[in-house]
């Protein structure tokens, strides 16, 4: 009871303090804020981790919409009819939107990103997750320890069994180059010839080229493959359901979501405040426990349950060898690389 009272008191002081700073000349509160996101499981987690807090603190309701596509955003900006205040999108779309001036800059005086990981401090793109493409295997498959590096993943003598890999070039080219001995800080610009030569080597041993996140965990559970690449949150979800998977984070590639506020959004000021909630370590910790991804706020892991901490990419045991994707390189080359990837795949048939 005492504890509860103390928490309540603390919350109200914090709330008062922040309300105080808004007091001078802040725009009127709208009835609701329109947030565009992909819905589904992520929608539930967003509500639990962020939206409820925002609604409680501001009294502004969140209205969810699910509208795909960069084209939609572009049309909204051009016609000046902005239908949502905050949106999530693919990271490359976000970078493009930022470059074209379609997004409001993230306001540092409202959204506190001082404790954020460096790659999540982009001027007009916000992210709350550190997601990775890692690898995983069933504990029983490699009882004496499984493949750690990408060179190990390529080594079918030492770690026998079929492999699972994403049916797209993203991350795979980096994995191939690291397996071929390229140092993680020397990856970009990617040497495509070298990467595809290395992929030629693994191709006969890839049992499944997976295309959905859930599939990457399922092929391990079904023992279709011995080890697979995959988004660590999907492996985490399988572990939460009781699958004895081991996630190996060595040399995993960092990915992350992307959020932004469309230029001229009706409630841009309050949208910044939503992002402020999404930047808080306590709220990001709720997201981490549900999703298995780390928060972009480095302090968020302190608020995560102890048994979950080691399963997150941001845990000190896991974070040392993580590799950052060069987003600009991919933004400029993805079309050409996807085409080459398709041609490569077709040549194998």
């Amino acid at each position: 009871m005492k504890h509860l009272l103390a928490t309540a008191a603390l919350t109200s002081i914090l709330a008062l303090a922040s309300f105080g700073s808004w007091a001078q000349g802040e725009p009127p509160k709208p009835e609701y804020l329109v947030v565009n996101h992909s819905g589904g499981v992520e929608g539930e987690i967003l509500r639990k981790a962020f939206f409820n807090t925002f609604e409680d603190e501001t009294g502004i309701k969140i209205r969810d919409v699910n509208q795909e596509g960069f084209g939609k955003l572009q049309a909204m900006i051009e016609t000046g009819n902005i239908e949502y205040d905050v949106t999530s999108f693919g990271i490359y779309d976000a970078l493009r939107a930022c470059e074209l001036g379609f997004l409001e800059p993230i306001a540092p005086e409202i959204v506190d990103r001082t404790d954020f990981v460096d790659h999540a401090k982009l001027p007009c793109v916000f992210s709350y997750t550190v997601a990775t493409t890692a690898k995983a295997y069933l504990e029983e498959t490699f009882p004496n320890g499984g493949p750690k590096t990408w060179a190990d993943f390529w080594d079918v003598e030492k770690f026998p069994g079929p492999r699972g890999m994403l049916n797209e070039p993203f991350d795979n080219l980096e994995f191939a180059l690291m397996a071929d001995g390229v140092s993680p800080d020397q990856l970009y610009p990617l040497d495509l010839d070298r990467a595809f030569r290395k992929l030629d080597e693994i191709y006969p041993n890839v049992g499944v080229w997976w295309s959905s996140g859930a599939q990457s965990a399922q092929i391990l559970i079904d023992k279709e493959v011995a080890v697979s690449t995959g988004w660590n949150g999907r492996f985490y979800a399988a572990i939460q359901k009781g699958a004895p998977l081991k996630i190996e984070f060595t040399q995993a590639m960092i990915n992350g979501g992307a959020w932004g506020i469309p230029k001229g959004a009706n409630n841009a000021y309050w949208a910044q405040h939503l992002l402020a909630v999404m930047a808080r370590p306590q709220n990001q910790a709720i997201m981490s426990e549900a999703f298995g991804y780390s928060g972009t706020n480095k302090k968020s892991i302190d608020h995560v349950r102890d048994d979950i901490k080691p399963l997150l990419p941001g845990h000190p045991n896991n974070s040392a060898t993580l590799v950052q994707t060069n987003l600009e390189w991919w933004r400029d080359h993805s079309e050409e690389v996807v085409e080459r990837w398709n041609a490569w795949m077709l040549s194998k048939q």
Partner: peptide, 22 residues
Amino acid sequence: GGGRVMMIALLIEQQVRTVVNW
């Protein structure tokens, strides 16, 4: 097909979902 068998419909889906080239 496990990603090994490429067909037109798969390619169309990839163009929409991955490359966003409508």
